[in-house]
Design a protein around this nucleic acid. Structure first.
Ligand SMILES: [Zn+2]
Ligand SMILES: [Zn+2]
Ligand SMILES: [Zn+2]
Ligand SMILES: [Zn+2]
Lengths: 137, 137
DNA sequence: ATGCTCCCTGAAGTCGCTACAGGGTCAAGG
DNA sequence: CCTTGACCCTGTAGCGACTTCAGGGAGCAT
């Protein structure tokens, strides 16, 4: 199949597929008479794996490693699990960080009751003391 | 003061300050005899504002707009509030997305009980059907 | 021949920095 | 006078994971 069909079937954009190839994630496919890329079922499976990994938030580097690990099916899966656990921990940390951000921001937003900019609590929470830019007026 | 002191006082790295200047967020400061940047109190206040905004997760574009808005203190603050509310909404959306990701990932991680890669449920959840790369072995 | 959809390459842009490389400035110390 | 060292300068390239654009070629239908 050509790149457009692969894109449609996986939900990965054409340009992104080409970029994956360029950066070594996908092997260079065969070319047809008109120099168009010609993909087979293995390429479809490989790209679907990448897509699913990206949707789960893994980095391309992690996905590369996960794909490499699938090659020796008899080996122990501990490295796979380590990658997944590490990523889960990362996600949990981000949630914590964003949650405290949300608290702070929603306090800010609620503090504003409308009015003049000079009185707005949002800007006053951002400013250190005294307005930030008053060099010349 | 010179750039190093400004960096120390705001917690913003020297290279980052220069980069803010280059990208128009900070005005070009005066230069002393040795061509060193020479900052005043207004620059300190302005950079502190930027830092606080970044810590709250605002984009540099939003911060630029917020700083521009502070110039006419008599205007209505509705645009300020809109920016803050929009950012809060963004943060909340990210939290939701990451939370569903966390659920999925922790299901994945828990599904693995150790063993061979060929059996690992983590990789099987990533693969579509059949292993992703089996072109030649 | 024309139009259309698809495809090609290569370069540059995005965001918010960070990390050099290869110098210049200036005060203190020997 | 000379060196050391902390600080500063410019400019460029790199990060991750793409997206966008310019400028074309392939192949089919009309
Ligand atoms: Zn991760
Ligand atoms: Zn307000
Ligand atoms: Zn935002
Ligand atoms: Zn496992």
């Amino acid at each position: 199949m050509r790149i457009g069909e692969l894109a449609r079937r996986t939900g990965v954009r054409v340009e992104t597929i080409r970029w994956y190839e360029k950066s070594g994630l996908l092997e260079k496919p065969a070319r047809n008479a008109g120099n168009y890329r010609d993909y087979d079922a293995a390429a479809l499976a490989r790209l679907s794996f990448i897509k699913r990994g990206r949707d789960l938030g893994f980095s391309l580097e992690q996905i590369t490693e996960l794909m490499a690990l699938t090659r020796n099916a008899r080996a122990d899966c501990e490295r796979v699990d380590a990658i997944a656990r590490q990523h889960l921990a990362e996600v949990e940390r981000k949630i914590v960080d964003l949650s405290s951000l949300r608290r702070e921001l929603s306090g800010l937003v609620n503090s504003c009751t409308g009015g003049a900019i000079g009185e707005c609590d949002i800007l006053q929470a951002l400013a250190p003391e005294g307005p930030p830019s008053r060099s010349e007026g």
